[in-house]
Computed example of a mutant assay.
Amino acid sequence: MATTIIDVAKEANVSPSTVSRVIANNPRISERTKQKVREVMDRLDYHPNFQARNLAAKSTKTIGVIMASSSVLAFQNPFFPEVLRGICSAAHASKYGMYLSTGETEEEIFDEVVSMTQGRRVDGIILLYSKVKDRTMDYLQSIDFPFVVVGRPFENEASVTYVDNDNTAIAAEVVDYLLSLGHQDIAFVGGDINYVVSRDRLAGYQQALETAGIPFQQAYYLQDSTVNEDGASAIDALFHLPNRPTALIAHDDLTAYEIISILERKEINVPTDISIISFNNHVLSQHLRPPLTSVDIQIYDLGLEATECLLNKMDDPKLPATHRIIGAKIITRESCARRGID
């Protein structure tokens, strides 16, 4: 049986109204009392039911948005402001607000989602990532809470509503584009392999090479964390291979920016010495020197479509899971050139 506000009041030896004021952070309640009540709430695993505090309300009119990492780190990546812009646009049209996760660790994010759902702080949740064996996604499925994923689920794909690009196909298309320019020695700097998007793009890269009769070389494959931690050494290793790559695919534009900066310091020219292409097509990419060829994955539309799917799911919980694939296209600029041509 769920813990009630009366249980908390009894355990803390205060009145239920005092507990309610502590939840609301009323300045009339002393810090000592607040601390005592909050300790009891934690011990009894009590989550305030904000919906129940207003019996007239049929919903919170709020959508929870969960990022894979802390908001401080996430907003360093232009992907998140743009996908949030799409979410806000659809939410605002339906008069919904947004509750953004603030947890710093995977454990904190999970605890926050539990609090959101058990406390009825939100009517539905959008996960802005898809991770291998994700505890949060498993939990949301287990309690049958309305949620949508931006990204293809690692497991139970058929039963989860999600919005994504066809990352395997678009990565293969990127390889084919470089092949059409005469490149065969193509390096790949992928993302964290614990995320499905990274796995799908790596799979597309490998499949396209296989189709072209080019063997996959482990030495050509790096993770973006390696570049971020010790980029100069990683790039040195690539350029000291017997057959050094003439083209490189980066997991996202931020990784490409870092690689180009390293190359510039080493006096390696893009695209004369190596062609570079990446994903996400951030607005800054067209202003880079040279302007960066990048895949436009329609980030705004990912957020917009995910929110519309969630609103539909909240309106009718019996709706079957839907899967929406957002188109993506290569935006050609000056960072890629035909092999051997300036």
Rank of each mutant, 00 (worst) to 15 (best):
K133C: 13
P153V: 03
V163L: 09
P146V: 14
D138M: 02
A158W: 00
D164G: 08
G151V: 10
E157W: 04
V175A: 05
S142I: 00
I170P: 04
F147D: 02
P146Y: 15
D164F: 09
R135F: 05
V150A: 11
G151Y: 13
T161K: 07
A171I: 09
G151K: 11
D166T: 11
D176C: 08
I170T: 08
Y162I: 05
T168D: 15
P153R: 05
P153L: 05
A158T: 04
L128I: 12
Y177F: 14
I170R: 01
V175M: 07
G151N: 14
A172G: 15
N167K: 02
F147P: 02
D176N: 15
Y129F: 15
D144V: 06
T136D: 07
V175F: 00
V150M: 14
N165S: 07
E155Q: 07
S142C: 01
Y162V: 04
K133W: 10
A171P: 09
V163H: 12
L140Y: 13
V175C: 06
D164V: 11
L178F: 03
N156K: 02
V160R: 02
E157C: 11
D176G: 09
F147Q: 03
Y177K: 13
N167P: 09
E157A: 14
S130W: 06
N165P: 03
R152H: 11
V148G: 10
S142L: 03
L140K: 07
R152T: 15
V150K: 09
V160Y: 03
T168F: 03
N156E: 00
A158K: 10
V175H: 03
D134N: 09
F147I: 01
D138P: 00
I170A: 02
D134V: 02
T136V: 11
T168P: 05
E173L: 03
V160E: 00
Y129V: 08
L128Q: 10
V150H: 11
Y177P: 12
D176E: 15
K133G: 08
N167Y: 07
A158I: 11
Y162K: 04
F147G: 02
G124I: 07
K131Y: 04
P153T: 06
F154Y: 09
F145I: 01
N165R: 03
D164K: 04
I125F: 09
Y162A: 05
F154R: 00
I125L: 06
K133A: 15
L140R: 06
S130C: 08
T136C: 10
V163I: 13
G124P: 07
Y139E: 04
S159A: 13
K131L: 05
Y162T: 05
G151M: 11
V175W: 00
T161I: 03
Y162L: 03
D164C: 12
E173N: 12
D164W: 10
V150L: 14
N156H: 01
D164L: 08
P146M: 15
N165I: 03
R152P: 12
S159Q: 08
P153S: 08
V132D: 04
Y177I: 02
A169K: 06
P146W: 15
L140Q: 08
F154N: 01
V174M: 12
V150C: 13
S159L: 09
A158P: 00
